[in-house]
Design a protein around this nucleic acid. Structure first.
Lengths: 188, 188
DNA sequence: CCTCCAATATACAGATCGGTATACTCATCG
DNA sequence: CGATGAGTATACCGATCTGTATATTGGAGG
């Protein structure tokens, strides 16, 4: 990836997240990246491709960040679940003041055949599988249920964070997850 | 409101929700409503006004629908909380396959000075206040916390419903709310 | 009857959209 | 030295965007 292409992707990521995908035009992206439209189209071919790479890159960065957080967390499954919430809080504070970029992109992309669609759905399914995997180690019987509940708390916290409904909703979700894990563990 | 204006609002509501606000142009709205652009601009003045009335109307309809559901629910606060989830499930099944229209609109509207902004934030704050009000009758001490937790479950369920991550997430959230209310009530 | 007004049809303005074309510079590498 | 390729600058294309102008039709109320 050439330096110009990198600047394009950085500018597009910032503008797409901040103002939405359809409101931001390629002229603005090129101008903000300090690059001509020729360069932009030589590297990416179409705006849609920039959208795809924006979401794919964001997905990849989040998974890498989460992996580092989980590496530093204790091995106990409940501690790892809480580490996910901690990671989300740290990530959202400096990367996602307007909520989850995948959810926001989904609001603008209706066509399931859009090349960005599998990235959006893929990240959410991956997160659900992550939670369910931890739940498996805690209660093999109710793993699916527990994983889904953790998913709901987590998604709700991201939305509440983006809408700024009340202060620090991700920490609140973390606490709720903690008591939920405690009562679940007490039963087995 | 003239019949033409009503058709404009109906068409705009359907198109905005399905394809996003910025992707849908006034020409398409006018065509789908069977109305000329002149009529559209005579009634609404600007596209932005159609957006505002779309969201305001949707907000109003949801509150009216919820009010009817709550009127038919038992007076016990925990039953009324569950009635909110039941109402959301019924509403979402036939009105919101792509998730909450307010959250989706928020993804496309970055400027807090946009006239639609207070409608979006207002509905979410109203929902939080509703949950907190019920929580007040259950545990006056932890009302704020309980209200916020219910809000997270509810918002998470709407997102999961829109992304179709797993089947019937709103019912799952309802069940989680039920056990949460049961354990909370048992403490007092 | 006659005025008012919602609505029609059609055309257009100015801007911006995504995307392309042409011609040039400049550094790297074989 | 010569070729390649990343980049710049600028101009353009057709389409679509929001919004406006002009002229006409038809029904309801005073």
């Amino acid at each position: 990836m050439t330096p110009g292409a990198l600047r394009v992707l950085e500018a597009a990521a910032r503008l797409f997240y901040e103002h939405g995908i359809h409101t931001v035009g390629v002229d603005l992206i090129a101008a903000e990246a300090g690059v001509t439209k020729k360069t932009l189209y030589d590297r990416f071919g179409a705006k849609e491709q920039i959208v795809v790479e924006y979401l794919a890159d964001r997905d990849e960065r989040w998974r890498a960040f989460l992996a580092r957080c989980l590496d530093a967390a204790p091995p106990a499954p409940s501690a790892r679940v809480l580490a996910v919430f901690d990671a989300s809080r740290a990530w959202s504070e400096e990367n996602s003041p307007k909520g989850c970029s995948m959810v926001n992109a989904h609001a603008e992309i209706s066509d399931p055949s859009h090349p960005a669609y599998p990235i959006i759905i893929g990240q959410k399914q991956w997160m659900l599988a992550l939670f369910t995997g931890f739940a498996e180690e805690i209660t093999p019987d109710g793993a699916a249920d527990l994983g889904r509940t953790l998913m709901l708390l987590h998604e709700g916290a991201l939305v509440a964070h983006g809408l700024n409904i009340f202060p620090d909703p991700i920490s609140h979700a973390r606490e709720q997850a903690q008591t939920l894990l405690a009562t679940t563990a007490a039963k087995h």
